Computed example of a mutant assay.
Amino acid sequence: MNLQNIGVIGAGTMGNGIAQICAVAGFSVTLIDVSDAALERGMGTVRKNLERQVSKEVLTSAQANRAIELIQTSTDYASLQNVDLVIEAATENLELKLRILQQVSAQVKADCVIATNTSSLSVTQLAASVSQPDRFIGLHFFNPVPVMTLIEVIRGLQTSDATHALALALAERVGKTAITAGNRPGFVVNRILVPMINEAIMVFQEGLASAEDIDTGMRLGCNQPIGPLALADLIGLDTLLAILEAFHDGFNDSKYRPAPLLKEMVAAGYLGRKSGRGFYSY
Results as ranks from 00 to 15, higher is better:
Leu80Phe: 09
Leu237His: 04
Thr177Lys: 12
Glu245Leu: 09
Ala127Gly: 01
Pro133Glu: 08
Asn2Val: 15
Gln107Ile: 10
Ile137Phe: 00
Gly42Met: 05
Lys263Thr: 15
Asn93Gln: 13
Ala267Cys: 06
Val194Ala: 08
Val147Pro: 06
Ala209Val: 14
Asn5Ala: 14
Leu70Glu: 07
His164Asn: 10
Ala62Gln: 12
Thr159Phe: 00
Asn190Met: 03
Arg219Thr: 12
Arg219Glu: 12
Arg66Trp: 13
Thr180Val: 15
Gln125Trp: 09
Tyr282Asn: 15
Gly217Tyr: 09
Asp238Ala: 10
Ile6Trp: 00
Met43Ala: 02
Gln132Lys: 12
Val34Trp: 02
Ser55Trp: 06
Arg99Met: 12
Ala23Ile: 06
Ile18Asn: 01
Val86Leu: 04
Lys176Ser: 08
Phe247Lys: 03
Ala78Tyr: 11
Leu193Arg: 09
Leu229Gln: 10
Glu40His: 04
Ser131Ala: 14
Gln224Glu: 01
Ser28Leu: 07
Ile87Val: 15
Leu261Pro: 12
Ser160Cys: 07
Lys176Tyr: 11
Gly182Ala: 14
Val147Asp: 08
Ile71Gln: 00
Ser119His: 03
Ala23Cys: 08
Gly15Leu: 05
Thr13Asp: 01
Met218Gln: 07
Ala11Asn: 01
Glu88Asn: 11
Thr177Met: 04
Arg277Gln: 14
Ala89Asp: 02
Ala169Cys: 10
Ile137Asp: 00
Val203Phe: 09
Arg155Ile: 07
Phe141Thr: 01
Met196Tyr: 15
Thr124Arg: 02
Val113Pro: 02
Glu199Thr: 10
Val145Arg: 04
Thr75Phe: 01
Gly269Lys: 04
Asn16Ile: 00
Thr45Gln: 02
Tyr280Asn: 04
Ser122Asp: 02
Asp249Thr: 15
Ile179Ala: 13
Ala246Arg: 06
Tyr270Gly: 04
Ser275Phe: 07
Glu57His: 12
Met14Ile: 11
Ile68Asp: 03
Thr30Ser: 12
Gly10Met: 00
Asp36Val: 09
Asn190Glu: 05
Ser105Tyr: 03
Pro260Thr: 03
Thr30Trp: 01
Thr118Glu: 04
Val8Tyr: 06
Glu95Ile: 13
Asn117Ala: 04
Tyr280Gln: 03
Asn117Gly: 11
Ser122Cys: 01
Thr91Cys: 06
Val188Pro: 02
Ile6His: 05
Gly250Ser: 11
Cys22Met: 03
Ala169Thr: 15
Ala106Trp: 06
Phe247Ala: 06
Glu172Val: 15
Thr159Met: 00
Ala25Tyr: 08
Asp249Gln: 15
Gly269Cys: 10
Ala25Leu: 03
Gly7Trp: 01
Asn223Ile: 11
Tyr270Thr: 12
Ser105Pro: 08
Leu80Gln: 00
Asn252Asp: 15
Ile18Pro: 01
Leu166Lys: 12
Ala115Pro: 09
Ser122Arg: 02
Ala167Trp: 00
Lys48Ala: 04
Pro146Tyr: 08
Phe279Ala: 09
Pro146Gly: 11
Glu206Tyr: 12
Lys255Gln: 11
Asp84Pro: 10
Ala78Phe: 09
Val8Ser: 01
Leu261Lys: 10
Glu199Lys: 10
Arg219Phe: 11
Ala90Phe: 00
Gly138Tyr: 01
Ala11Ser: 15
Arg99Pro: 04
Thr91Ser: 13
Tyr77Met: 01
Ala268Gln: 13
Ala181Glu: 01
Pro260Met: 04
Ser61Leu: 13
Ala62Asp: 14
Thr116Gly: 00
Lys48Gln: 06
Ala165Glu: 13
Leu139Pro: 04
Phe251Trp: 07
Asn93Ile: 10
Val46Arg: 00
Asp36Trp: 03
